[in-house]
Computed example of a mutant assay.
Amino acid sequence: MRSVFGLAVALAAFWMANSGYLKPMLLGFGVVSIVIVIAIVKRMEAHDGERFPLFVPSLRLPGYLVWMIGQIIASNIDVAKRVWLGRKSLSPTILTVRAEAKSDVGKVLYANSITMTPGTVTLFVHDDTFEVHALTEAGAEELGRGVMGRKVAALEQG
């Protein structure tokens, strides 16, 4: 029950942050939307087996988000540089990386973090391994070192 209340509060805050209007009709649409989302989530929990942790119980999350933003900025700069340098600066590579995260949520976070970083895309997810396309061999080597995977796994540990 507590998770349903937490989800409703988070959705209401998200709705208000994006809407900003306090008109009765829009608030009504917000309430209806929240009820529909909660019903879908409750139905998913009944079949999924793994409950999605609404609030990641980790003090490491803010640090991970700051680190991830830094990675996105650095990768954007690298991709822009390679666009200016032309084709000879590219060395497309496909590699397989192992997910250190144990939960499905952790694996999804890791796969999405890879894809959010410009120059890398998660192509396939096979249990604990991901097939990833990297724009350059250097990007593939950096991903292969596993820093991102360890940071995501650390979020699960709290």
Rank of each mutant, 00 (worst) to 15 (best):
Gln71Gly: 07
Ala153Asn: 04
Glu142Ile: 09
His133Arg: 08
Val66His: 00
Ile72Phe: 11
Lys88Tyr: 04
Ala153Glu: 09
Ala111Asp: 06
Ile77Lys: 09
Tyr110Lys: 10
Val125Phe: 02
Leu11Ala: 13
Gly20Asn: 05
Trp84Asn: 02
Gln157Ile: 05
Leu143His: 03
Gly158Asn: 07
Ala46Gln: 10
Ala17Ile: 14
Leu11Pro: 01
Phe52Gly: 00
Tyr21Pro: 00
Phe55Asp: 00
Leu95Lys: 03
Gly146Asn: 06
Leu143Ser: 02
Met44Ala: 11
Ile94Phe: 08
Lys88Ala: 11
Ala101Glu: 03
Asp128Glu: 12
Ile69Asn: 10
Ala13Ser: 13
Lys81Met: 12
Tyr64Gln: 04
Gly144Ala: 09
Tyr110Pro: 00
Val132Asn: 04
Gly63Val: 12
Val56Arg: 04
Leu135Ser: 09
Asp78Ala: 15
Pro62Lys: 04
Pro53Lys: 13
Leu109Val: 15
Tyr21Gln: 11
Met25Arg: 09
Gly30Phe: 09
Met148Val: 12
Ser75His: 09
Phe5Tyr: 12
Val56Ile: 15
Pro62Cys: 08
Pro62Ala: 09
Gly144Gln: 06
Val56Lys: 02
Ala80Asp: 07
Val32Met: 13
Phe29Thr: 06
Glu137Asp: 09
Ser75Ala: 15
Pro118Leu: 13
Arg43Lys: 08
Ile36Leu: 15
Gly63Pro: 07
Glu45Asp: 14
Val31Ala: 15
Gly70His: 03
Lys88Cys: 00
Lys23Asn: 10
Gly146Asp: 05
Ala101Trp: 08
Lys102Thr: 15
Val35His: 02
Lys42Ser: 10
Leu155Pro: 01
Pro92Val: 07
Ala13Cys: 14
Leu59Ser: 13
Leu61Gly: 05
Glu137Ala: 14
Gly28Arg: 07
Arg150Val: 06
Arg145Asp: 05
Leu135Val: 11
Val35Ser: 11
Gly28Pro: 04
His133Gln: 11
Arg145His: 11
Ser103Trp: 08
Arg60Gly: 13
Ile72Pro: 02
Gly6Ile: 12
Val125Gly: 02
Asp128Asn: 14
Glu141His: 10
Gly70Pro: 05
Ala13Arg: 04
Thr117Glu: 04
Pro24Thr: 12
Gly63His: 06
Gly106Ala: 10
Phe52Ala: 06
Lys88Trp: 08
Leu59Trp: 06
Val83Lys: 06
Arg51Tyr: 00
His126Asn: 10
Lys88Ser: 14
Ser103Leu: 07
Arg2Gly: 02
Val37Ala: 15
Leu26Gln: 12
Val125Trp: 01
Met16Phe: 15
Lys88Gln: 12
Ala39Gln: 01
Met44Lys: 06
Gly149Thr: 07
Gly28Met: 06
Ser33Pro: 00
Ala153Ile: 03
Leu11Gly: 10
Val31Asp: 02
Leu90Ile: 14
Trp15Tyr: 14
Ile73Gly: 04
Thr129Arg: 12
Gly158Gln: 05
Gly30His: 05
Tyr21Ala: 14
Ala8Lys: 01
Asn76Cys: 14
Val66Gly: 01
Ser75Val: 10
Arg150Tyr: 01
Val56Asp: 00
Ala134Pro: 01
Gly139His: 05
Thr129Val: 15
Phe55Glu: 03
Gly30Gln: 05
Gly6Met: 12
Gly144Leu: 03
His126Pro: 00
Ala138Glu: 12
Phe124Gly: 00
Met25Phe: 13
Asp128Leu: 02
Leu61Phe: 14
Thr115Gly: 10
Pro24Ala: 13
Lys151Gln: 11
Ala138Cys: 00
Pro53Cys: 03
Val56Ala: 07
Thr96Ser: 13
